[in-house]
Design a protein around this nucleic acid. Structure first.
Length: 203
DNA sequence: GTCGAGATTATCT
DNA sequence: GATAATCTCGACC
């Protein structure tokens, strides 16, 4: 499957693209991971998306051409990576939440000294970027082209995957957003990541 | 295994 | 000044 074909596949809403990324390989230098957990973010309709409030300098990449990498800083010390989806002009992206290191495990271990097991190396969005060596410098890079950027390689479509519905959702005013999460069942690198607990208990 | 709280800074209002 | 697509450590079961 050539790059152009892949880019066409990515030119759809993140909710449709997300399952396609499960099992896909992402390579940057010596490290390759197999994506085991992703999450879809839309633009206008997803209150949890950075693009919900319109385009900002930071989210410009998200509105750009599909197949590019959207990397951003969060909580002051972490980097998260997304693959931009939907046609140019439409904000949509898939957050890479977790993966299994299939190549370059030694290097990933050096970068993630706090990991005690290999399954922990890329379990979590910020952990994944550390293990892979993704930084803000990769923001806007084309994952289907340049060799200096992370390179995405789709696997065969995942036939079996988990899918979360909005936990805690709800009703009107439910700001819980739409955590459209997709994962590969039975993967240690997915595991029951800490369930997001409410900061404030609802009355 | 689950639950709770602190750390730390770019970005937006 | 408030917020945030998080991680790590500690306490408890």
């Amino acid at each position: 499957m050539d790059g152009q074909t892949v880019r066409e596949l990515l030119s759809h809403p993140a909710t449709e693209v997300a399952p396609l990324l499960l099992g896909a390989h992402l390579t940057l230098g010596p490290v390759t991971i197999r994506l085991t957990e992703v999450e879809a973010y839309l633009g206008e309709t997803d209150p949890g998306s950075h693009a919900f409030r319109g385009m900002t300098p930071r989210t410009t990449t998200m509105f750009g051409e599909p197949g590019h990498l959207y990397a951003y800083f969060t909580y002051g010390m972490h980097v998260c990576a997304n693959v931009v989806c939907s046609p140019t002009g439409e904000a949509s992206a898939v957050l890479l939440r977790a993966g299994e290191v299939v190549e370059g495990v030694d290097i990933a271990r050096e970068r993630r000294t706090t990991s005690k097991t290999d399954a922990d190396l890329a379990r979590g969005p910020a952990r994944l970027t550390v293990a892979m060596g993704i930084t803000l410098a990769h923001n806007g890079a084309d994952v289907l082209g340049e060799s200096s950027a992370p390179r995405l390689e789709l696997a065969r479509p995942a036939v079996d995957f988990g899918r979360s519905v909005r936990t805690g959702v709800s009703g009107p005013g439910g700001l819980d957003a739409f955590p459209w999460r997709f994962w590969l069942p039975g993967e240690p690198s997915v595991s029951p990541y800490r369930a997001h607990y409410p900061k404030k208990r609802p009355g």
